[in-house]
Nucleic acid binder design. Structure first.
Lengths: 217, 217
DNA sequence: TCCATGTATTTTGTATACATGATGAAAGTA
DNA sequence: TACTTTCATCATGTATACAAAATACATGGA
């Protein structure tokens, strides 16, 4: 998004929306709980207008639910919700993998492989937080390489909804090792530009994700 | 969305959002043109607050673009945008088809077949508008049968963005006949619960859609 | 004549005030 | 005691007023 020098002239409601997003992901706003408008606008130091506009944005994104005349609540994901999101995400990422093999430049692939290597460094050191962040970036970047903006947007949306759960997801060692193996396979397939193989690897990876997160919902 | 009896107690900004959506689809608000806030709130008879909240919702849905301090414009879809949307939609509908074969009840399939038959009646009479509406419903209903709410939501979102283009899409007779043939194939596959065949039929149908609409962008 | 700078006007962004509807407590009745 | 019913209070929804930014226009200088 941020192109070159341009000063961030972001409107207040955009900033508020980002802020609330973070609060939800960090768990400071608990899923299912009512969003105390009066309290939050005080804490954020803004008035109700931009705050409510931000809420409408988040509602359209699926992060909060506004109940007319009854206030808004942080959307609480059920098992079924998460399952369905992963089912769709799996499909989107398979598509992203296939398209990337066709459309990415050699440089772009090299850059992604480089990112992958840094991830592996983090894994060797069991450095969880940087790994987590690089992992997020890996998947976004792969979506970018598909050169399909709608795909990127949808993927980003589902990722955002799931972020909270993945954030708290108890990454057991054996799960982590499995994820790493998936990524190795993905990178190999991408290097070979083997669309089918990469697509399957992406899908396989997300199938495993369900096992990793289902107990933390 | 609308569950059971609940009286429409919809908030004003929701109504405004729906209204603007319609204005965009009907072409009364032209893609690329600035949205004249003062003029529209007068016409709709509401104040700026709910109007602006509605705009934020539509922005998150991808129908309008708000440029900070510079007003909002109706999003204008480029060829590339539409292509990428159809690419994703194709994938989503393939998934919807596959899942429906596994998860739909016999009654649900029968109801969809019935809807299909009504579509065919419209086709025989060359009754375009009812056909168009039934067609929309056919695809939504099939997404429902997948029992995957995220899938439904994403599909509905892309459909909404494309609605305007499909609305004006110059349906040449040969295109129409092709679409009808696709639908026949889809229904046969669904009756047999042949997931792969239905998935392919859905994907094939949307591949053709690109040819049908690409000249009206 | 053309460009730059300053000013006026319009448009957008934010805050606040008012209206309306929901929630819950107290009082009254069965 | 349990169950209504009413009223008070508070939260949400909407309108308006004020502030800030952007655009359009005009004036002056090269």
């Amino acid at each position: 998004m941020g192109s070159s020098i341009a000063i961030t002239n972001r409107s207040l409601h955009d900033q508020v929306a980002s802020r609330i997003r973070d609060l939800i992901i960090e768990g400071r706003l608990e899923p299912g709980s009512r969003i105390d408008e009066a309290h939050l606008i005080e804490e954020l130091g803004v008035s109700r207008t931009p705050f409510r506009e931000a809420l409408r944005t988040l509602a359209a994104e699926g992060l909060v639910i506004v109940r007319p005349s009854k206030g808004s609540i942080v959307r609480k994901l059920t098992h079924k919700d998460v399952f369905s999101m992963l089912e769709v995400l799996r499909n989107l990422e398979r598509l992203a993998g296939e398209l990337s093999c066709e459309r990415a430049s050699d440089e772009e692939i090299a850059a992604l492989v480089d990112l992958h290597n840094r991830m592996m460094d983090c894994y060797r050191l069991r450095d969880r937080m940087p790994y987590y962040k690089l992992n997020q970036e890996f998947h976004s970047r792969l979506a970018e390489l598909s050169k399909n903006e709608t795909l990127q947007e949808m993927q980003a949306n589902i990722q955002a909804r799931l972020k909270r759960i993945r954030y708290i997801g108890n990454e057991k060692p054996e799960f982590w090792a499995g994820a790493v193996a998936d990524h190795e396979e993905m990178v190999l397939a991408l290097k070979d530009r083997d669309a089918i193989r990469l697509g399957n690897a992406m899908a396989h990876h997300l199938k495993n994700t369900w096992d990793r997160v289902k107990d933390s919902i």
